[in-house]
Design a protein around this nucleic acid. Structure first.
Lengths: 341, 341
DNA sequence: CTGTTAGCGCCTTCAA
DNA sequence: TTGAAGGCGCTAACAG
């Protein structure tokens, strides 16, 4: 049988209370006594039963998830996953509160984080905006000892404990390689369609993409980035325009939202003239387009994985436990029509 | 506060013991009493605290993992992951016993499963061999109520509760599409390198690959499957031979082990004559080759994910709890040199 | 500084 | 068929 607090109390010749004080690093124990207990712990190889401890403490974990109030497919899916996680969590003495903030609004995010700082929950996860004010409040939260996970979009060189999201530079590179290989050697022009170059993840995807183009595909000329603001209608308009101005577009990297607009344009292009398309985010629209052969590859980040990972990490941090790095690494999923889930 | 057994005992006007009997479906309760209790449970929305229950029962989960005693990179990695999982599990009242069996030996596997049947642990995970004897003992285990997960290789139409592994037909199709696209339209010959066509996952990969070739790439001629028995030396020999017999090989799908042998041959091929190569399993060797550009894409199944998933599923089954399907789906990871972990 | 005692939420004898 | 009481491993008052 695994040793319990009773065993080490007996072995060290002290009472349960003293063992507990040592275990939890509470004051009021003479150094001699403390070391007696510590020796017993080491000798018996005692590890405390977290479940029993939590039961005794009636401990409940309280986490806050701050999500942008944004209505594209990805954010909707992310929200759904957080809600699902929160429902499951309630069975396990874990309460997840969801806070919505206006999107792309650093001040709103800061305000939400300030409330968190006042609340002092056991952890907070949020979709970061890379702005000085945000970094500042993040530093404060860190000092206050609130475990912090950035979700989907990171805060560089910050005081967050963990980032649950993909490497966007690598994603851009991956898209570049796929497009380059699929176009194999043809002299051609390639369009890049982003949401907004003000958003860090989009910038990084473009950066990675352009790097690969420059390194490996001199035959491809990349047109100026089109910003569609993740908005189908605007995307449709701008892409149509691009096709008129540059009839020879042979490849498209769509790294933001609004793919429905893109697809409306593509469906009008004669089959033999269709460009190779690599897009982001597996949604009903992109999935269908992949099946039809209108999109050639979809890069995806698994929102469910990101949320579950964030919860696991917050719990581990709250307990001072180690994280299984490999489990928490968010993959850049590549989907062809053949490996759709 | 969430309701506890006390609350429902009071609300139903019975004792704790009776509530417990109803909760655990034990006999010795009059139907009237039972329904009183059930009403209270429903009315208060009671859900039992599994952690507390397990503590009271001093419950420990006992799982058995049966792994082939096989020494390629993948199986070594798998074993490592099971060991790691077993170490973590010991903290959580979960004991994982690892049993090694000679590989490709249905009888040995059956013998191991028979011991499991005698033992009746709370769950068993094993790398299946698709043979009638195995299906038979699996059916018996199922009848005996032992939760069962197949790992890496499945048992079709069987009585397993869950399969923790990839869809190998889809993997073959994915490889086919990548190779087809990377070779874009060239008239060429393609070699397929398998371990053994006696193993189900290899057969399925070939099947998926050939299907895509037939459907979408009439320009590519697929040479007869080379069986390298997952053995570097043999692979090297047979691939060398293939290159002599068919100098024009422009693509290779390596779906089994022994990639080191393949790489030795490829490194001798003049750069301009190098074939497009899609291989399976991310190992030190394939990772390096991906970086060098000798391999173009690697398909991978994450052994760590498979093992953690198997443990989670076994625990859920043992507790009669639902499984989060999306979490347990094992992806076909596609790695280019740009998205290596 | 240290020990005693009473729980946390649930399960399990043992009596009635 | 039902209930009372004690315990799982740990924590937290409250006394000494």
């Amino acid at each position: 049988m695994k040793p319990t607090v009773h065993d080490i109390a007996r072995s060290a010749g002290v009472s349960l209370a003293t063992v507990d004080r040592v275990l939890n690093g509470r004051p009021g124990v003479r150094a001699v006594t403390r070391s007696k207990v510590e020796e017993a712990i080491a000798a018996l190889g005692f590890v405390r039963d977290l479940a029993a401890a939590n039961l005794a403490k009636s401990r409940t974990y309280s986490f806050v998830f701050i999500l942008p109030d944004y209505d594209n497919s990805f954010m909707k899916g992310l929200r759904r996953e957080v809600v699902a996680a929160s429902e499951r969590a309630s069975t396990e003495r874990t309460e997840i509160r969801i806070v919505a903030v206006p999107h792309f609004d650093p001040h709103a995010l800061v305000a939400a984080l300030e409330e968190v700082l006042a609340d002092k929950p056991n952890g907070v996860a949020f979709v970061a905006i890379d702005a000085p004010e945000v970094r500042e409040i993040a530093a404060k939260l860190n000092e206050a000892g609130v475990p912090m996970v950035t979700l989907v979009s990171d805060l560089p060189a910050s005081s967050r404990d963990h980032y649950a999201g993909i490497d966007n530079i690598a994603a851009g590179r991956t898209a570049g390689s796929l497009l380059g290989r699929f176009l194999s050697g043809r002299e051609a022009q390639v369009a890049v369609l982003a949401g907004s170059m003000l958003v860090r993840d989009h910038r990084e995807r473009v950066e990675g993409f352009l790097a690969v183009m420059a390194e490996a595909y001199p035959n491809l000329r990349v047109l100026p980035v089109i910003e569609g603001r993740d908005d189908s209608a605007l995307v449709e308009e701008k892409v149509s325009e691009a096709f008129e101005v540059t009839p020879g577009i042979a490849g498209i990297y769509s790294l933001g939202g609004g793919n429905r607009g893109l697809l409306r344009v593509l469906r009008k292009v004669p089959v033999e003239a269709r460009p190779v398309v690599v897009a982001h985010d597996l949604t009903d629209a992109t999935r269908a387009a992949l099946g039809e052969g209108i999109i050639d590859a979809v890069l995806n980040q698994d929102a469910g994985h990101e949320v579950r990972s964030a919860v696991r990490v917050l719990k581990a941090k709250a307990d001072g436990l180690p994280v299984i790095e490999a489990q928490e690494r968010i993959r850049i999923d590549i989907f062809l029509k053949d490996n759709l889930p």
